[in-house]
């Protein structure tokens, strides 16, 4: 088996993405609040693309009812999501820097936990928690940009999921309408589409892509 080192992994990424992009990603730090269907998939994409540091927060443990859409495995049931996801991310990039917070996020601890992250992904389940995180992060952390997910329930068309710039420092991904309480189910495919939108918006921000078309 080929021996993978930090150097060979770096060079493999440079071969695909070019050195300029790889350096920008490697020097980046991104926060993810909530490690469920959205957060676990966002983290996987960002680690694959070579984001150097992730700050991951979720108080919950892996449950059998998570496996239908979240990036966990049967042998991780009962583990903290922070620890379980960290194990998976280190299989993708053994040198990724991870800060893990197995705590419930509140208006009191959000500014401290994510204070060093220029970009934060909101990946909560409940609408009230999403609103709380947005209010806290945008009010308390004047340099942070938030990429949020809202509206990915049900089996409607995946094409309805979009990314839009909703505020000066807020991007919202999703269809904006399908509430899980009303549409009943969250399917792995549609949730992953939304997570893909969020991870891709993070990529575009890190690469400095123009967002005027949003």
């Amino acid at each position: 088996m080929e021996t993978v080192t930090q150097k060979t992994l770096y060079l493999a990424r440079v071969q695909r993405h070019g050195e300029e992009a790889v350096k920008k990603l490697q020097n980046a730090c991104v926060g993810i609040a909530g490690l469920g269907g959205l957060g676990s998939h966002i983290a996987i994409s960002l680690a694959r693309m070579g984001v150097g540091k992730l700050v991951l927060a979720d108080f919950d443990r892996v449950d059998i009812t998570n496996l239908h859409r979240q990036h966990y495995f049967v042998d991780q049931i009962g583990c903290l999501k922070t620890e379980a996801l960290a194990d998976t991310l280190r299989k993708i990039d053994p040198w990724i820097q991870l800060e893990l917070y197995p705590v419930r996020l509140t208006p009191e601890n959000i500014p401290t936990i994510f204070g060093s992250c220029p970009i934060l992904c909101e990946a909560f389940d409940k609408a009230e928690e999403k609103a709380m995180l947005l209010e806290t992060a945008l009010a308390e952390l004047p340099h942070i940009t938030v990429v949020s997910g809202s509206g990915m329930a049900g089996a409607g068309s995946a094409n309805e999921i979009q990314t839009r710039k909703a505020m000066k420092r807020l991007y919202v991904c999703g269809d904006g309408e399908t509430d899980v309480a009303e549409y009943g189910s969250l399917f792995a495919s549609r949730v992953a589409v939304c997570a893909g939108h969020q991870a891709h918006m993070v990529l575009r921000l890190l690469l400095g892509e123009d967002d005027s078309a949003l």
């Binding site: 909530g34 469920g36 269907g37 959205l38 957060g39 990946a123 909560f124 389940d125 409940k126 609408a127 999403k130 609103a131 947005l134 949020s148 997910g149 809202s150 509206g151 990915m152 329930a153 909703a166 505020m167 807020l170 919202v172 999703g174 904006g176 309408e177 399908t178 509430d179 899980v180 309480a181 549409y183 969250l186 949730v191």
Partner: peptide, 10 residues
């Protein structure tokens, strides 16, 4: 004014 309404699911 910008108002963003959130729905549940994630």
């Amino acid at each position: 004014v910008e108002v963003v309404g959130f729905v549940g699911g994630g």
